[in-house]
Simulated assay, not measured.
Amino acid sequence: MTVDPQQLLDDGYIILRGVIPDEKLEPLRVSFEKMVARQKAIWAKERQPEDPPGGQWELAHQPRLIFDTLVDEETANTVEFSLHEHTMGVSRQIMRAEAAGITGLMFMCSPTTDRGPANWHRDIHPIDQAPLSGLQMDLLNNAPGYIQWNIPLYDDDVLWVVPQSHSRVNTEEENRCLLEDAHKPLPQSIPVELKAGDGVVYTNTILHWGSNYSAGLRRTIHIGYRSFGGPVFPYVNRFYRDLSFTACLSSGAQDVFHDLKQRYDEEANVIETTFRAIINKDEPVFLDSLSRLHPGETGRIVCLILLSKLVYKMRTGTHAVRPGYGGDMSYDEDLKPRFTAQELDILWQRFATLDQKIQADQEVYVPGFQSGPMHYYFNESPEAFGVEEIIASWN
């Protein structure tokens, strides 16, 4: 399956027909229902005394399986589909990457009772990522470093989007509507109408909406992919540190995961080299390693903002404003043991000026993000402050 990556840059999403080949659709339905049964049993067992008999299956507005935790030989086709040319292969094309690594394998189900609509949002939280305008600039000038998919096993029109909103900040009208009622259609929004086996791939910087979580049957695969060897450093850059779940997969599928893990480990080493160059104020090594993490010449400041968030997580672990701080990164677990507490303090000092540049003196708030009020700017990137200015701030 061949796609035009420019379509995602232009519109923020691409609808693809027949992502699941006809002969794979029914076997996937069977396997995923087995996983649903397993997860329902787990949630029933884990229920609290005050919970209904089904626990989270009955409580959740959108029951969501993490299906790499449920896979076995009988259901291996679920994970192996994420490696298919129609999914991983297309993702690699769109991200202009050597490889597409999986960041999450999820399966979205209908609730047991009608729950209505969710909130409009962008899956962005600048407190542990970067300001929206920076992420947008990086994507439009280079390529997406992260994309996600919805692939329904049955017809699905729950997802709505505002086309082209991925390339701009909210309009005044959108902000007004979001503040008045974030559960209603936004101006210019449209439903993403998918038949069973179709797919939509999109950047999660786009304004999107779960329009109706009803009890009607919904079974939709939701996968995230990050780039390896692409032009940008992904703002969602986690990968599986433990590949034990792949033991039930075919040898070919295991080889793919092990190749991705090797790429992840190599990238971790480059990040360590970057951090040590910053500690030592070694400008040539710093610039070389930065260019390896973010080959695109435009947008490297975004990479450095993301690295500053990683350092914060390595030093602090969490943030009072966002308890799940840094959930889209996993390098902290690999890199923190390589640095002393003193080295981490020095690293954070090197990023202090940059961190100040992306914060306001008072709390700010923009609707439509996965964040409440905070000091970090939602939209604005630092002006006239780039790699050279960061190097100068070390002295």
Rank of each mutant, 00 (worst) to 15 (best):
Pro126Met: 09
Ile127Thr: 07
Ile127Arg: 15
Gln129Arg: 15
Gln129Met: 14
Pro131Leu: 06
Leu132Pro: 00
Leu135Lys: 11
Gln136Val: 13
Gln136Gly: 05
Met137Trp: 06
Asp138Lys: 11
Asp138Phe: 01
Leu139Ala: 05
Leu139Gln: 14
Leu140Asp: 00
Leu140Tyr: 07
Leu140Cys: 04
Leu140Gly: 04
Asn141His: 15
Asn142Glu: 03
Asn142Cys: 08
Ala143Asp: 01
Ala143Ser: 15
Gly145Phe: 08
Tyr146His: 14
Tyr146Gly: 00
Ile147Pro: 07
Ile147Ser: 06
Gln148Gly: 05
Trp149Leu: 03
Asn150Gln: 10
Asn150Ile: 02
Ile151Arg: 10
Ile151Gln: 06
Ile151Thr: 15
Pro152Val: 05
Pro152Asn: 11
Pro152Asp: 03
Asp156Val: 03
Asp156Gln: 06
Asp157Pro: 04
Val158Thr: 11
Val158Ala: 05
Val158His: 08
Leu159Trp: 11
Val162Leu: 07
Val162His: 04
Pro163Arg: 04
Pro163Lys: 04
Gln164Met: 11
His166Arg: 11
His166Leu: 10
His166Ser: 08
His166Tyr: 13
His166Trp: 14
Arg168Pro: 01
Val169Ile: 14
Thr171Arg: 10
Thr171Cys: 08
Glu173Leu: 15
Glu174Asn: 05
Glu174Ile: 01
Glu174Met: 06
Glu174Cys: 02
Arg176Trp: 03
Cys177His: 13
Cys177Gly: 00
Leu178Lys: 04
Leu179Asp: 04
Leu179Pro: 00
Glu180Trp: 07
Glu180Ala: 15
Ala182Arg: 14
His183Ile: 00
His183Asp: 00
His183Glu: 01
Lys184Gln: 11
Lys184Arg: 13
Pro185Glu: 07
Pro185Cys: 13
Leu186Ser: 02
Leu186Ala: 03
Leu186His: 03
Leu186Gln: 02
Leu186Arg: 03
Leu186Cys: 02
Leu186Trp: 03
Pro187Tyr: 06
